[in-house]
C-alpha cells in the first residue's frame, strides 16, 4: 500500500513539472520574443509624441524582465527542491559521524625538530584591465 502511494506521489510530481513547463513555456517564449523583436535603441520619429514613445519603450523592457523572472522560477524551483531532498536524505543517513578520537587533546606532540627553509621566491605581475571609458 505504501509503495503504491509513494509511486503515485512520484508520478504526480513528475506530471506537475511537465504540466507547469507546458503551460508557461509558451508565455515565457512569447514574452522573450516580444522583447527580442523590438529594437533596444529607439530611433527618433519626428512626428511621434515623445512621451508615448517612452511609455512603449518602458513596457517592452518590463515584459522582458518579467519573462526572465519566470524562467528563473523554472530553474530555481527544481534546483531548490532537489537540493532540499538531498540534504534531507543525507541528514537521515549520517548522524553523528564526527571524529572518534580527539587527537588534539589525547595525542600531545613533543616537538624535537622544527625547521622551515625558504627554497624559492617567485613574483609574477599582470596588467590590470582599466575601464578607459569616461562616460
Amino acid at each position: 500500500m505504501k509503495k503504491r502511494v509513494t509511486s503515485y506521489a512520484a508520478v504526480l510530481y513528475v506530471m506537475l513539472m511537465i504540466l507547469s513547463f507546458c503551460c508557461f513555456a509558451p508565455a515565457v517564449c512569447a514574452a522573450g520574443d516580444d522583447a527580442a523583436d523590438e529594437p533596444q535603441i529607439t530611433t527618433a520619429v519626428a512626428s511621434a509624441d515623445q512621451s508615448e514613445l517612452e511609455l512603449t519603450e518602458v513596457s517592452r523592457k518590463r515584459n522582458s524582465g518579467g519573462g526572465r523572472f519566470i524562467v528563473f522560477g523554472f530553474i530555481a524551483a527544481p534546483l531548490a527542491a532537489g537540493v532540499f531532498a538531498l540534504i534531507t536524505i543525507n541528514g537521515y543517513k549520517n548522524n553523528g559521524k564526527t571524529e572518534p578520537y580527539p587527537f588534539t587533546s589525547k595525542a600531545p606532540l613533543e616537538l624535537t625538530e622544527k625547521n622551515d627553509f625558504l627554497i624559492n621566491t617567485e613574483v609574477t605581475k599582470r596588467k590590470l584591465n582599466n575601464n578607459s571609458n569616461n562616460n
Binding site: 606532540l109 616537538l111 625538530e113 625558504l118 624559492n120 617567485e122 613574483v123 605581475k125 590590470l128
Partner: peptide
C-alpha cells in the same frame, strides 16, 4: 596598473614524539 603576486616556497620539517 599592475597586480603583483609573490609565492614563497618552503621546505618544512617537523619531528617529535607523539
Amino acid at each position: 596598473d599592475y597586480e603583483y603576486e609573490e609565492i614563497k616556497t618552503f621546505d618544512v620539517r617537523r619531528r617529535g614524539i607523539i
